[in-house]
Nucleic acid binder design. Structure first.
Lengths: 328, 328
DNA sequence: AAGACGAGTGCGCAGATGAGCGGATGCCCG
DNA sequence: CGGGCATCCGCTCATCTGCGCACTCGTCTT
């Protein structure tokens, strides 16, 4: 666009959007035809001079949704807007709300829903309205008995979700990770546990979150891993954990021994699911989110617009930039 | 607005502004009539859910302009947008650019223009395009020979402005403030000086800025006042300086003795002028700006949107809020 | 040098949109 | 219980706006 046209476009945009004048009036004021005014306004919008933003806790980013959905071949997607958020917690809550809205509107409603646990899913459960579904069976898909905290927040998530839908909960009151593979095997053979695990494996839909691979991972907080354990995993390429399993950028477990001690749904089952809803929000989770969508670990992604933007930033370009930086 | 209507409005706004669907289509999608969609969109804009912002260095805030102009009975006004600025310097520059644009477009073009000096006016002079006027006489209206810096930046402002208009400059190469009233009087009697001062008093229009009353005042930098002098002035109620004179919230000099030692145009002459253009920008200048507009020291105000917003915030309301805070 | 080409411009028209209006609905108070 | 009142809703109509098309003008190519 021409420089003098740009100034005209700015002036026209002011008169049109701020003052609410018609394009005809603006044309008369600026001594140009109304068609030119229309074109200037269109150019101004295309050039980003006129920015239209929807500022609301429930606002979604439709454009980003379409782009991410298409790019990674997702079945469905929700990108919550971060416009106007003042804290990471608020962003988390917005995404949780978006996930709750999505679940509530999900049709056909699943008969059984497999859920993992964590801070994010706890929020989702809290955001669900009473009667969000009718008689759904909520199955916990990975262990989560906390070793450090009083009470079982992991099971609580499934319980709350079932309760609000007047449905039934099937919990896994066992540790997420066991010390020995043998112990894990014997626990899995327990009739009650096996029943829940079987139900989990046959759930129609899954709802899960992802954790960062870092010292503040939920698995560290719960006492299954030490910060140094996680550090080792990061060295092996871990970008985060999904249903208790630490994965790398390739979407596969980074430590097969650790993985064999982890109780719960396998990543293969998740990959094979028709409806695997991942809820991932926050600055630190961009890499896990990428691992999820690039390796088909989810069919539905619910996230924030910053994560979406990070996903759309070509990783090749990022690598090239890093390379340039190294070279200089 | 109803809560469920609000959600509908957000959804409608997304479809309308992000996806570019028609109101009819949106109505079909949301199972409401297109008239309802139109009303929801209007409500969303009114409620600030949909925020339309013009992001451009030359953008103005037309609504704020109208409000401030009406509230304080100004002849004209320019409010520059601060959308997208990253530093106070950038904001200063935008306002300076706006002032330059205003001067260039000013009709009828003044034959003689009285100007003060300072950081802001220096920027304005720099922003003026070559040929912004034809043969205008630019008169410096207050002293400004720097005691500390090499060269005379004060006169430079008038010179640059005259040069760019192929006009003549009339400078005042004398101190802004003198030590004794007697010295000031005798300087004023000097034939050359008196001629410039007379020309200044009869200028058709004035362009001036305002300084904050603080340690970084231009008058401190230039060596006329010490930081403690300014502190004393602040204690006496000074909110800033205009053409070298420190004024209070009432628009009158706070220290008559100091004022009598200050060379240059009187505030009375400024008040009586048909065209007195004040250029005031920046976080710290809200109070001076208020003093200017509430006491008719300018007929035209050129400022930034944050200052404009501060002017529109009712001082009574502010006082009441402070009172409430104290009481609680 | 002449014609092809593309960018920019003005215009007609169909579709989209906003203002105003009468009727329906729901609520409050007598 | 019923009338008055306010709000909301759907509609008509006039206006506004985006799209496609023909035209002009300057530039580049042959």
């Amino acid at each position: 666009m021409n420089s003098s046209d740009e100034l005209l476009a700015v002036r026209a945009a002011e008169l049109y959007y701020d003052e609410g004048r018609t394009q005809d009036e603006i044309g008369a004021a600026l001594h140009i035809t109304r068609w030119k005014v229309g074109r200037l306004l269109a150019q101004a919008r295309a050039a980003g001079i006129v920015r239209i933003e929807i500022v609301h806790p429930r606002a979604r980013r439709v454009l980003a949704e379409q782009a991410v959905k298409k790019r990674f071949g997702l079945k469905d997607i929700v990108v919550a807007s971060s416009a106007g958020v003042s804290s990471p917690e608020e962003l988390q809550r917005r995404v949780a709300q978006a996930a709750a809205d999505y679940l509530t509107a999900l049709r056909p409603a699943p008969q059984t829903l497999g859920v993992s646990w964590g801070r994010t899913l706890h929020d989702v459960a809290a955001c669900l309205p009473r009667g969000w579904a009718h008689g759904v069976g909520v199955v916990q898909i990975n262990g989560g008995l906390s070793l450090t905290k009083y009470g079982d927040t992991a099971s609580a998530t499934a319980l709350v979700m079932a309760q609000k839908a007047a449905g039934s909960a099937h919990v896994l009151p066992i540790p997420a990770i066991l010390e020995h593979t043998a112990t894990k095997r014997s626990i899995e053979r327990d009739r009650a546990i096996a029943g829940v695990l079987d139900r989990a494996a046959h759930a129609e839909a899954y709802l899960f979150s992802a954790g960062v691979a870092g010292a503040d991972s939920a698995l560290v907080h719960s006492g299954y891993l030490t910060p140094s354990d996680v550090e080792t995993l990061v060295c092996k390429g871990a970008v985060g954990d999904v249903v208790g399993r630490f994965i790398g950028a390739d979407g596969a477990p980074v430590d097969s021994e650790l993985d064999s001690r982890t109780v719960g749904l396998s990543l293969e089952r998740l990959k094979a699911s028709e409806t695997a809803i991942a809820v991932v929000a926050g600055e630190g989770k961009h890499e896990v989110a990428r691992a999820l969508v690039t390796n088909s670990l989810c069919t539905v992604l619910i996230t924030d617009d910053q994560t979406a933007a990070a996903l759309l930033d070509d990783p090749v370009a990022v690598t090239a930039a890093a390379f340039t930086e190294e070279a200089s």
